[in-house]
């Protein structure tokens, strides 16, 4: 909520109203998908509707997997995804990169550790390391907090962190608390001693506010600058996806163009995500 407010304020000051730019667009639209992209998509929709008074858009945060399924089935005309599309999905669906995001490993305040290697991170989430003692911490059991299987973050974390050592097939430890949203991971890590989880970079703040901390990975800190410079080891692209290439003159195309515009990228930035590098 706070993010949305600050996005609104930032917009009020920095953006020139562009009413009439897409005056020909009208109608109601339902988009949906990744909960990760929801914060900036909500803020972008708010501004987009102000610019196009005839358009009503709602976005349902159902998870990347659910969003892409609904898109393929025709329930959505546009889906947000934080997961890479499978080869099968790419046959019919067309993703457009609209923002970057980093994933941040977060731990409860009881865990006295500030840096972890990517290999150890993978070992924890596959259940090969189960005690903080093995990483030089206190002798306490590691409580793994994982996402549910529909989550794009769940797949992204496996692809980026675990795939290299443990193969393509997802094989996280099953002895893990399963949380359905970034916010739930943050809440459970913040409240459970000895716990570790991973969240979209923007959500790490929630854990830190509650007394937990984010971990450096291979000595790199999770900053926006590091993601843009491609130094942060756990980063990914966020997509808006359409069935077939976006059609010129459609609301979907106009919305994607809006997010890719300077105005849209300012919204991405104000909601703590990472704008695409300019070039």
């Amino acid at each position: 909520m706070k993010r949305l407010c600050s996005a609104g304020i930032a917009l009020a000051f920095s953006l020139v109203a562009a009413s009439g730019a897409f005056a020909q667009l009208s109608g109601s639209f339902t988009f949906g998908g990744s909960t990760t992209v929801a914060p900036f998509v909500y803020a972008a929709i708010e501004q987009f509707q102000k610019d196009n008074t005839g358009v009503k858009i709602s976005y349902e945060g159902t998870g990347s997997g659910a969003g892409l399924t609904s898109l393929a089935a025709g329930q959505y005309s546009l889906a947000g995804s934080s997961a890479e599309l499978s080869a099968d999905q790419l046959k019919t669906l067309v993703p457009t990169t609209v923002a970057l995001d980093g994933l941040t490993p977060v731990v409860n305040k009881s865990v006295k550790l500030s840096n972890i290697s990517k290999a150890n991170l993978a070992a924890i989430f596959t259940g090969k390391i189960t005690n903080w003692k093995e990483l030089g911490g206190a002798d306490s059991k590691i409580v793994v907090v994982n996402r549910d299987e529909s989550s794009g973050t769940y797949k992204a974390f496996w692809e980026i962190v675990c795939q290299k050592d443990y193969g393509k097939a997802i094989a996280y430890t099953k002895d893990a608390i399963v949380a359905k949203e970034n916010g739930e991971v943050a809440a459970k890590v913040a409240s459970t001693p000895g716990s570790i989880g991973y969240v979209g970079m923007a959500f790490a703040e929630e854990v830190i506010k509650a007394g937990g901390r984010s971990l450096m990975v291979d000595g790199v800190k999770d900053t926006i600058a590091n993601v843009v410079a491609k130094k942060w080891p756990i980063s990914r692209s966020l997509y808006l996806v359409t069935k077939g290439a976006p059609v010129a003159g459609s609301v979907e195309k106009a919305f994607i163009d809006f997010i890719l515009s300077a105005k849209g990228q300012a919204i991405v930035k104000s909601t703590d995500f990472i704008p695409l590098p300019k070039n």
Binding site: T62, G63, G65, A66, D148, S150, K174, A176, I177, V178
Partner: peptide, 29 residues
């Protein structure tokens, strides 16, 4: 706790039939 494994004891994580349906319902195909 919602882990898809049998409870390891009183303090073990548990997933019930209803939890299993709701956790996977939104995206299963």
């Amino acid at each position: 706790g919602n882990a898809p494994i049998p409870p390891s004891g009183l303090t073990g994580k548990v997933r019930t039939l209803t939890m299993n349906i709701i956790t996977d319902m939104s995206y299963a195909k």
